[in-house]
Simulated assay, not measured.
Amino acid sequence: MQTTDILLHDLDDNGILRLTLNDVGRRNALSEAMLTRLGTAFADAGANPSVRVIILAANGPAFCAGHDLKEMTAGRAAPDHGKAYFTKVLAQCSGVMQSIVNCPKPVIAQVTGVATAAGCQLVASCDLAIASDTAQFSTPGVHIGLFCSTPMVALSRNVGNKHAMEMLLTGDMTPASRAAEIGVINRAVAPDTLQEITMEMARKIASKSSMTLATGKRAFYAQREMPLSEAYDYASGVMVNNMLAHDAEEGIGAFIEKRAPQWQDH
């Protein structure tokens, strides 16, 4: 296992990379250091052919408390009252969230404890999320005079407008059961089953062609921003190219011949 002070890396024989937030004393806040390490970890994982699926987990009672408000407050000491610093940190955070979406490997959040503000954004940015039924989610910026505008981007792309606005306008904690109902997470499970259920999903996904998964993930996020007819044109082109790939030919042949496919990931 390769470790850093605040982010743990563990790659198993199935190609499942577990990234574990480990800055427990700061409730796994998205400090500059944490954002840097996450950005590097997702870039490295995306380029590593040995990685097939990524699980994002956390140690301690909080999954992620969002931005490090002490760091942010210290930034106000600058002559511009922190404008340049805030701009830099928010751009860095937005870059990490986009790196999750743009990563060719599926990313599953395994959530325990609370995920608040940019921590909730982190969960919403992952492709899938499974949480302990004791976990809670919130975008509480309104409590401190700061609307969760950047978390809103990821949240509003996961849940309906009125559910997103309820979370954003009230700042209330949303229990895992409700988060599953509205689409923040896929499901809420008993704490003692969380890791195994997450691993079961990761192993299932890892058994597929990584070329197929990367093709599908990229197309999913691209098409949803397009008008309907444009989305169909785009998706049709993606599917034509996918059909011409080795793994599609192999997979279809294996299905017809009733045998297990032998993926070559291209």
Rank of each mutant, 00 (worst) to 15 (best):
S50R: 11
G75D: 01
A109S: 01
V51D: 05
R26Y: 13
G25F: 06
A43L: 05
T73E: 05
M34A: 09
L19Q: 12
K88L: 08
L35Q: 06
V89S: 03
V101H: 11
S94I: 01
V96N: 02
A74W: 00
A33C: 06
R76D: 14
P106Y: 04
A58T: 03
T73N: 06
S94L: 02
R27L: 14
M97R: 04
G39K: 02
R26M: 12
E32H: 03
V101W: 09
A84G: 09
R76L: 12
C103K: 03
R37N: 14
L69V: 14
R76V: 14
L56F: 00
V53W: 08
K88F: 07
F42P: 04
L35H: 05
V107H: 01
V101N: 06
Y85G: 00
D44L: 07
C64V: 13
I55Q: 02
V107P: 01
Y85S: 02
A57Q: 07
A77G: 12
L38K: 10
Y85Q: 00
E32G: 04
I55L: 04
E32R: 05
A57F: 10
C64A: 08
S31E: 01
A77D: 15
L90M: 13
R76P: 07
M97Q: 10
L17I: 09
A58R: 09
F86V: 15
N22T: 14
V51M: 04
V111L: 00
D68E: 14
Q92R: 00
S99V: 03
R27N: 15
A41H: 06
K70R: 14
L38I: 12
A77N: 10
N102S: 12
A74R: 08
D23P: 07
R18L: 09
